[in-house]
């Protein structure tokens, strides 16, 4: 393999990992706080991507500039993340007392509904608006030309979000409340934390992260039917590899999976789909709780 391809694969891997981390973070965050694995998270990604592309296309009539593209990413994220996140949270309220696996099936049912919603709104042809990638231009890295968007924006966004979320959870009042609910809901409620409100906010944050991942991915990936399923399984692989509820773990797992995935695209394209699961499977075989989960002692 020549070094050009290796560089390209690594760059692709890192930029893909950036997107993957943002999406997985939403999944792991909702799970960490509410104990619900949200299968509809994949739909949030897809809807976020579709919405961004639609808004981009709509604006493109006037001017195809960077500002419009950024605006479409932000608008797509907010629109989808808040609306879908809130609907989902409302739906799940009816099933609070059910076992986690049934709650998972509810999100799965919601996911099926959203599949058709996507088809009704956006049809089956691919959506792809790459204006921003072109506008931002290319740069030479180790002899390879690479887009600034993928080199800087995707990984940059991931790192920024990582730090913002960490700061938010550790230092803001709301973040501290969320952490308190995660550790011990009864005690937190006893101390005056409004658990319902926290749950709502959690779903909005999780929804925003999912939609933001899709919005960021839309200039480099076409949005097609079925992409939600691919993403939910892929981000589950990241989250499970890291350990459910692990933020830093998700960052590292996303990097590992992202890089190995893009290496396989260049070297063994037929293995592309299998790689993330092989990584997850290997990790779970040796560490059933994921790489970064600290085992909690429980008494009987």
């Amino acid at each position: 393999m020549n070094s050009g391809i290796l560089t390209l694969a690594l760059l692709d891997g890192v930029s893909y990992a950036g997107m993957l981390f943002i999406v997985s973070l939403g999944l792991t965050f909702i799970f960490g706080v509410t104990n619900i694995l949200n299968v509809a998270h994949g739909s949030l990604y897809a809807c976020g991507g579709y919405a961004t592309a639609s808004i981009g296309l709509w604006l493109m009539g006037n001017d195809g500039g960077i500002i419009n593209s950024i605006f479409s990413i932000i608008a797509g994220t907010l629109l989808v993340g808040v609306i879908v996140g809130l609907i989902l949270e409302y739906l799940l309220r009816f099933f609070e007392k059910k076992p986690p696996i049934l709650q998972l099936i509810i999100t799965f049912a919601f996911f099926m509904i959203l599949e058709d919603v996507q088809r009704l709104i956006w049809g089956t042809s691919p959506y792809f608006v790459s204006t921003i990638v072109g506008e931002m231009g290319n740069v030479e890295v180790l002899g390879v030309f690479y887009t600034n968007y993928q080199l800087i924006v995707l990984p940059g966004a991931a790192v920024i979000i990582y730090f913002i979320l960490n700061w938010f959870l550790k230092h803001s009042l709301l973040g501290k409340k969320i952490v308190a609910v995660t550790h011990n809901k009864e005690v937190a409620v006893g101390m005056g934390v409004d658990a319902k409100k926290i749950k709502k906010i959690t779903f909005i944050i999780g929804g925003l992260l999912g939609a933001f991942g899709g919005a960021l991915a839309s200039p480099t990936t076409s949005m097609v039917p079925g992409i939600s399923a691919d993403i939910i399984v892929l981000s589950f692989a990241v989250v499970a590899t890291a350990g459910l509820g692990q933020v830093t773990g998700a960052l590292i797992a996303a990097l590992i999976i992202g890089i190995f995935r893009s290496l396989s695209i260049y070297l063994y394209p037929e293995l592309e789909v299998v790689i993330p699961y092989v990584i997850m499977g290997t990790v779970l075989l040796f560490k059933p709780q994921g790489l970064f989960t600290v085992e909690k002692a429980r008494r009987i």
Binding site: L244, L284, P288, Q289, E295, K296, R298, R299, I300
Partner: peptide, 11 residues
Amino acid sequence: MNTVKLVKGVS
């Protein structure tokens, strides 16, 4: 306040 969960990997 003691709960039971023997089998790991589930939580």
